[in-house]
Amino acid sequence: MRKLTYFVGTSVDGYIADPDGDGDFFNRWVEPGYAKDMFGEFPETLPTPVRAELGLEGAVARHFDAVLMGRATYEAGLRLGMTSPYAHLDQYVASRSLGASPDPAVQIISGDVAARVRQLKERPGLGIWLCGGAELAGQLVEEIDEFVVKTYPVFAGAGIPMARAGFATRELELTDLKHYAGGQIVSTYARRR
């Protein structure tokens, strides 16, 4: 069965974006060693145009062959003219407000997103990358099998949290931990079921 992995960047205090939804402030902490490791381990998480710019268009997907994002996350790419930001993956956007997809390569999921994710997990293939954001992660928190949390050395103080899931203790097991000279920490947790 495929896994749903929340692969996400966050500040030390758990914010994935500023209050307006912009996460570009994390880019200042992408030093060469960290970037090389992340691009090498997770090349499929780079948008298709960025993969081309970096000469990674032929990089083999190691973890994911599908991406699931919320409407706000998808619209960030749309504002830049990317209707199919991850053309190298099966793309799904969870939205109650988007009607038709602006691109035939992007499927809109409405209604019971958790049920649809369970269906996707039953299909053969690599894992499913939960790309964002907080509302969607909150809706799917019980379906997330793995968390790969890239913590950047910044305290934001406010913004969009990693998830809006409501309080409950959900046990995780630390399965990997890496730290980098630039102060980034990548923690991988598996869900204890």
Rank of each mutant, 00 (worst) to 15 (best):
residue 165 A to N: 09
residue 9 G to E: 15
residue 4 L to I: 13
residue 179 H to N: 02
residue 22 D to T: 03
residue 29 W to R: 02
residue 89 L to C: 07
residue 70 G to F: 04
residue 56 L to S: 09
residue 177 L to F: 13
residue 51 R to D: 04
residue 49 P to C: 09
residue 150 K to F: 15
residue 62 R to Q: 13
residue 96 R to M: 04
residue 193 R to M: 00
residue 64 F to A: 08
residue 99 G to M: 00
residue 41 E to I: 09
residue 171 E to S: 11
residue 183 G to N: 03
residue 139 Q to I: 14
residue 185 I to G: 01
residue 169 T to Q: 05
residue 188 T to H: 01
residue 142 E to N: 15
residue 12 V to F: 15
residue 58 G to M: 05
residue 185 I to C: 03
residue 111 G to V: 01
residue 18 D to L: 03
residue 129 W to Q: 10
residue 23 G to V: 02
residue 31 E to W: 05
residue 123 R to Q: 15
residue 11 S to F: 07
residue 61 A to R: 13
residue 144 I to H: 12
residue 40 G to N: 04
residue 121 K to M: 06
residue 119 Q to E: 14
residue 9 G to M: 14
residue 132 G to E: 03
residue 107 Q to W: 00
residue 14 G to A: 08
residue 144 I to D: 10
residue 88 H to D: 04
residue 73 T to G: 01
residue 168 A to L: 05
residue 172 L to F: 12
residue 20 D to C: 04
residue 15 Y to F: 14
residue 22 D to H: 09
residue 92 Y to I: 02
residue 33 G to H: 07
residue 102 P to L: 00
residue 187 S to Q: 01
residue 118 R to K: 11
residue 2 R to G: 12
residue 91 Q to K: 03
residue 81 G to E: 05
residue 73 T to Y: 01
residue 8 V to N: 10
residue 102 P to S: 02
residue 132 G to A: 12
residue 125 G to Q: 10
residue 162 M to T: 13
residue 78 L to V: 10
residue 55 G to T: 07
residue 148 V to E: 15
residue 50 V to N: 07
residue 38 M to G: 02
residue 43 P to F: 07
residue 21 G to C: 06
residue 42 F to R: 01
residue 158 A to D: 15
residue 87 A to V: 07
residue 173 E to A: 10
residue 59 A to L: 05
residue 101 S to I: 02
residue 176 D to S: 05
